[in-house]
Simulated scan of single mutants.
Amino acid sequence: MPLRLPARPDRDAVLIAATGLAGGLVLWFLGLHNSPPLAALPGWLSLVALGIMCGAELLRRSAPLTALAVGTLTLALDLCTGSLVATIAMYTDVVYAAVLYGRPSVARRIPRIAEVLSVLGTLLAVAVLRKPEALLIGFGFGVLIAAPAWTGASVRRHRDAARAARLEAERTALLAEMDRREAVVAERARMARELHDMVAGHLSAIAIHSTAALSIGEPRASEEALTVIRENSVQGLAEMRRLIGLLRQESGAEEPAAAPRLDGVDALLAHARKAVRDDRFRFTLDDARGLVPLPAPIELAAYRIVQESLTNAVKHAAPGPVTVRLAREGRGRLAVEVSSAFGDGPGPRAPGSGAGLVGMGERVALLDGEFEAGPAAGPDGKQWQVRAVLPVREEESP
């Protein structure tokens, strides 16, 4: 494994080391030592200890534990040669930096170790000197190692708490932005479904009757087609204005417009009869819902499913019966079925976008229901069947 060199010292480390070196040199030349040497060692070794401690200071950020180990050995040398205040001051900073920048597991142990060493140093001094002044040695140990260690631990806790709070604030802001985007996407999808379901039927009738008016040379038939076109244009415009009014409505300004309910399915069938202009189509309703009222979201979803299914029948179905069935199934669920004749024709009577089935599936999924659409066998031959089952919870019933 290749040896990793320490990173380049930062500006603070260089400034502390330079200041400590300058101060130590001044104290040495003036002969201002803290105490006489503890061993018969030459005095110039205190300058060696000062230089080594300055080197340890340069590692305070990049390799704090290495700096602590080197600084501890250097402090022992300094005490044996007559210590300098500058060397001791830099050592306290090395202890502080080891707790602040060291690995979390080691940084948690350093204050405890400093406490133990302070107590042992006090007991040893009292046992050797047997004087009350020996307590001052224990106090010196506490100031030298325990105080900077606990100061570093306190600063580290505050720093970690601030970092955690900042990350939590960023996470909260990110989640809020994601919720906002999801809300915008959901609202746009809801607007697209409402716009498609309200206007597509009217526009399909306009397309079918305008084609008839252009292709039939009979004045009376053209007049009837233009009448239907005008009716659907007026109704479509009214629906558009209602939707725009809902979008422009300010929160709390007034009560929202009443949502369509299944009682209006007869009007949808009457509108489909006018739109198709073919006597071979037979639109019938089989309503077996019962007398128990349904929640408004269920009524709205069922109404829109019937509306879009009839619009698709007008555009694509072969001549024959178009049946709408509403029934209550097990556990109070509402079943909505719309079936129409299915055959291979020359093409749709009006263009479609394919968004109708997607919108119906989305409505059912929002209510945790079941939806399927496709060809099916019927009593009169092959059929196209749309079936949705919407769950009705008792607590939501009006």
Rank of each mutant, 00 (worst) to 15 (best):
V85L: 05
E239I: 01
Y101P: 10
V364R: 04
G345M: 12
A189T: 14
T227R: 15
E372F: 01
L226F: 11
A341M: 11
G381E: 03
A161G: 08
V119K: 15
I110F: 05
A257V: 08
M191C: 05
A63K: 09
L123Y: 08
W150Y: 13
R393K: 08
L50W: 13
R282C: 10
V94C: 10
I145R: 01
I208W: 01
E308R: 04
A114V: 03
L50R: 12
L120C: 11
V119R: 08
T172R: 15
L124I: 12
E133A: 07
A161K: 11
R282V: 13
Q235N: 07
E224W: 07
S35A: 12
A318E: 13
A149F: 03
D78A: 09
H158V: 10
A341S: 13
L326P: 01
M178S: 11
R328Y: 00
P351I: 06
A164W: 02
L268D: 04
K274V: 02
L291C: 05
R333L: 02
R241Y: 11
E239P: 00
L135I: 09
D368R: 10
V392E: 11
R130M: 12
N312L: 06
R261C: 10
Q235P: 00
R241F: 02
G369A: 03
E250Q: 15
R8P: 00
L21A: 12
A69G: 14
G381H: 04
G320A: 07
A259E: 13
E362W: 05
P219R: 15
G82W: 03
G23W: 14
L27V: 02
R166C: 03
L45M: 13
V126A: 08
L167F: 08
V126T: 13
A213R: 03
E218T: 11
R159Y: 04
L117Q: 12
A153M: 08
S251T: 14
P37E: 06
D380F: 03
L357Y: 04
P346C: 00
T92I: 00
G138V: 11
E372I: 12
A313R: 02
E239S: 09
E337N: 06
L326W: 01
A127Y: 11
M191I: 14
L243D: 02
A56H: 08
V386C: 01
R304G: 01
T74K: 07
L58H: 12
I208T: 05
M198D: 12
A213N: 02
P295T: 14
E224G: 04
M53T: 14
E394L: 04
D10R: 09
T323C: 03
P379G: 00
F342D: 08
R387I: 03
Y91L: 05
A335I: 01
